[in-house]
Write a protein that binds this DNA or RNA. Structure first.
Lengths: 340, 340
DNA sequence: CTGTCGAATGAGATCGATCTCATTACAACA
DNA sequence: TGTTGTAATGAGATCGATCTCATTCGACAG
């Protein structure tokens, strides 16, 4: 590919002049500028960003790490980040960590070698993260998404998961539910799930209801009805469950229906995240909607401000309760029908 | 950030020796090497990839462009590509085009300036693509995904959409359906949808059934029942419909159920793509599964071979019919119940 | 015709790693 | 002790764009 020197030669000028014709056209005589542009055209010259990056000590690239793109929450957020970043002249290097600490570490190291101008990370657990500790020591512009701010020392974009967990619980209580359980993926991996559970516990307690232990499923995004069966058939016999994410909720609803349960008549199910598809299912999914597009945009804008040397302290973004057909009033004293 | 020169100084050697300590350790005396490594450690030296890229004329970066990450098909494929690329030491620059030709053009231009080693593209319509024409003229390593090979002149990874469309249709015919319609998003934008429709037409004709005109919906991934109503209530009165992608099918099922139709009893619905979630719904989605992970892997491996100067001609990957509860046998002579 | 000022241009250094080629150092051997 | 061969190292160029500083050019006033 043609470089600036060959353009300059063809135009009969020096590299400096050729460069100016592009970056500071007003410093170049109109005639000369045209000669340069014509030469560039002829050689189909395309400026080499790598050289520009080396020279300017800035890559205009942002490193993004999400746990997985198989979960629409992250994919949809990434979509918003990409659009926003490109509109500001930045490119994204995208990686997935599978919530794996050693991969997280390698990925961040690689991105720092690439001299990205900043990092947007979603880690498994921001409070116990080897990567974050390393980064804290080097303090490049770095922002967490979805991870609660906590003690990590990095700014964070996301909703208030505790309040959101409480709101979800309140919503069910308002519908008349008193026996509510919560379902999550492998607990220890996710700080969000823990906070949402804490919100649930708070809300239950605020209504003098006793929170139940979290029901853990073996996978993050796929329900296993067998794990819930003891709870459903036990003496607590919940009339509603909250899942810590939408995929879990959707697949739980499917399993319940296939097993002959009616949703919401036999059991109300709430999700968490608000993925787009949830609206179009039947029953439509009642969920706490995280403003994914806003999160993606805010993440990029906040990071860009950090790159410019500011030290923002972004407020949590508002979540919205999206009501849906998967939640209804509890059946009338249903527990009586199975308790003696 | 410390550079190699400061490391060299601290270690009391020249830049060349310091560089060798990393890239050709066997050329350096053990003692010297240790001094260099210790100095690098002390300064927390991190090699600058931008400089390496400029020097080596190779970025180890792949430019990826997909229409949208809001559709799990692309997100899941991207997930597979990222894992595969990283395992080979490559990074991905990810962009979304919204099927928009002018964005496609800007994106590709930007990636070429970045001197990516290769491109993986999914364009709206490979046969009428301004970007592809431009690229053809410059011939960087470039690969299409999902787009049928066609006349574009670029290798392509994906399934045989025509055969897949025919297989879907055959499946329904085997179940006893004779009145089958097909539903798509905005037609003109997607070469895949066209091919799938062509497959449907072929299969119908092969069974002496008359294919119906495509029912177009205003959005790619969200069904609008009203668009289908004329077909359902008209004299053709299909007992089954095929959607050109899963999101369309899932949301159509939701709309149907909400309107009081039973799936599959009143209408069987097939999808296309095989996104993960489809399995866990009730009714589970009957669909043509594209091997997304295999496609992602094959895309990266094929592109890497192109980067190495080969000119591969990848075969279409096999699609699989995933049966599901959204398709059943047609109701018995249902047309008689509404025709006089 | 010369001096001056500003506009236009060019020469060379720079960013950081790495490669080539030359040089040094040291050991073995005559 | 001088020679030769090899291992180890260093000096300098290179990748491509851009910035600084110096120089040239042209016009115009004196």
């Amino acid at each position: 590919m043609a470089d600036l020197l060959s353009v300059a030669k063809l135009a009969g000028v020096s590299r400096a002049t050729a460069a100016r014709a592009f970056s500071n056209p007003e410093l170049v005589r109109a005639l000369t500028r045209e000669k340069v542009l014509k030469a560039a055209e002829q050689l189909s010259f395309r400026p080499n960003k790598v050289a520009q990056q080396l020279r300017s000590q800035s890559t205009q690239m942002i490193g993004v790490m999400v746990p997985s793109l198989d979960n629409p929450v992250f994919a949809e957020q990434l979509q918003a980040m990409e659009v926003t970043a490109r509109a500001s002249g930045y490119s994204l290097i995208v990686t997935t960590s599978e919530y794996d600490a050693s991969q997280e570490s390698e990925i961040v190291e690689e991105m720092l070698r690439q001299r990205v101008d900043g990092l947007v990370l979603t880690v498994a657990d921001a409070d116990n993260s080897a990567v974050l500790n390393k980064l804290l020591y080097e303090h490049p512009p770095c922002l967490l998404v979805y991870n609660p701010p906590g003690q990590s020392g990095f700014p964070s974009i996301g909703v208030d998961n505790l309040a959101a967990g409480a709101d979800a619980t309140h919503h069910l209580i308002e519908q008349g539910h008193t026996r509510i359980s919560m379902v999550a993926g492998p607990l220890l991996q996710s700080d969000r799930a823990r906070q949402r559970y804490a919100g649930y516990c708070q809300a239950m307690a605020a209504h003098d209801l006793i929170p139940r232990p979290l029901v853990e499923m073996p996978r993050h995004t796929q329900a296993n009805l067998a794990c819930l069966t003891p709870e459903l058939e036990g003496e607590y016999h919940p009339s509603a469950v909250i899942c810590t994410n939408d995929l879990l909720a959707i697949s739980l609803i499917g399993e319940l229906q296939r097993a002959g349960f009616a949703v919401p008549n036999d059991l109300s199910v709430m999700g968490f995240d608000g993925i787009a598809l949830g609206r179009h299912l039947y029953p439509s999914l009642c969920t706490i909607e995280q403003p994914r597009a806003a999160i993606g945009q805010a993440a990029i804008h906040t990071l860009l401000s950090m790159i410019n040397g500011e030290m923002p302290n972004p407020a949590p973004l508002p979540h919205v309760l999206r009501s849906g057909e998967s939640v209804g009033a509890p059946a009338i004293t249903p527990s009586l029908s199975i308790t003696p």
